[in-house]
Write a protein that binds this DNA or RNA. Structure first.
Lengths: 171, 171
DNA sequence: GCCGAAATTGAAAACAGTTTTCGTAATCCA
DNA sequence: TGGATTACGAAAACTGTTTTCAATTTCGGC
């Protein structure tokens, strides 16, 4: 079973690979390669974690301050369409985008104290879901499992259970 | 284990009980009892399922057409605060509200074809989540599990897998 | 290299769902 | 039954996201 892991630095080879895959996608669709899109995707792939549009735009603006929201949104949609990126919503009202990790499918643990998001995958869990669906005459296309709580890595998160921070507006 | 069930008609006694509980809540908070709030909550508790604000407003307007969005939103917030109702978001951008069923906690299967929402609960699933969290040094406060797919009750949902209907914008 | 159709951009407007404002009306305790 | 307090409803404001539109860029063919 694949344990929880904090996301590692994206490695440069993988990033290049993804950029190439996106270029392919763009070409296959008969779309055009533009400076803005390149800036956005290469910025995106070099970030790690679950990026909100605003976070991405901020980074992107460092490379090219003239790029605006619209283009970032549009490019993210393309990334999702290309299959290179997934959109997630964790209940704080923001869409977040995640470049595929090497784990194909995974679920999330979200620390309500520090906001850290961990990925995990467990085949028994998947199997159990399948068999439950089966029993109930339901066919699963996809699912979403999110555990909200406190990570124990940082003692701070265990102490500060006041639910003051991120917890307030989550969900 | 508690199997999937479609929601039954809310029974009149339970509804009365909830209305009373809400009245209590209002009083404890030093708020006022108003005709509008009464209309809204009694309409809400007599509906079943996972109600969107618009659905609720439509129903409410039949009893009193002068009631507007603002009051419905405000009353729903009170219901959530009172603990009698939970807010859910299934990724179509709408908040949905659910009066507690008799199953305290439960997860959801959502049919992407017909939009039907089923509730289920499975202790093994819960236990597995707990042990995964344990292993990974994480403390769960709450979680959310949603299975998206096609219900097999209606043959229509199995046939029509084209992802044309509800599926398109979901997530 | 240059043309021109087609795609893309950025700013701003539009949108959807939700929240807030503000003047008026209803509640309810002394 | 005041009268302070809370609630109401309509409309404006807000947030995150999408669309519009005129101007710009891309790129395959010449």
């Amino acid at each position: 079973m694949v344990p929880v892991k904090k996301l590692r630095e994206p490695d440069e080879n993988l990033v290049r690979q993804k950029e190439a895959a996106f270029a392919d996608f763009i070409q296959r669709k008969g779309l055009k390669t533009t400076r803005q899109r390149n800036t956005i995707i290469s910025t995106f792939f070099r970030l790690r974690g679950h990026i909100s549009v605003e976070e991405l735009l901020n980074q992107v603006k460092q490379a090219n301050p003239r790029i605006g929201y619209a283009t970032v949104y549009r490019t993210l949609h393309l990334l999702v369409e290309s299959g290179l990126v997934e959109e997630r919503r964790f209940g704080d009202g923001l869409a977040r985008y995640e470049g595929h990790s090497d784990v194909e499918h995974h679920d999330h643990m979200i620390c309500l104290e520090c906001g850290e998001i961990f990925e995990f995958f467990n085949p028994r869990l998947e199997a159990l879901q399948e068999s439950l669906a089966e029993e109930n005459n339901f066919q699963i296309f996809r699912h979403r499992l999110e555990l909200y709580g406190a990570c124990k890595d940082k003692e701070a998160c265990q102490r500060r259970k006041s639910r003051s921070s991120v917890a307030a507006q989550a969900e």
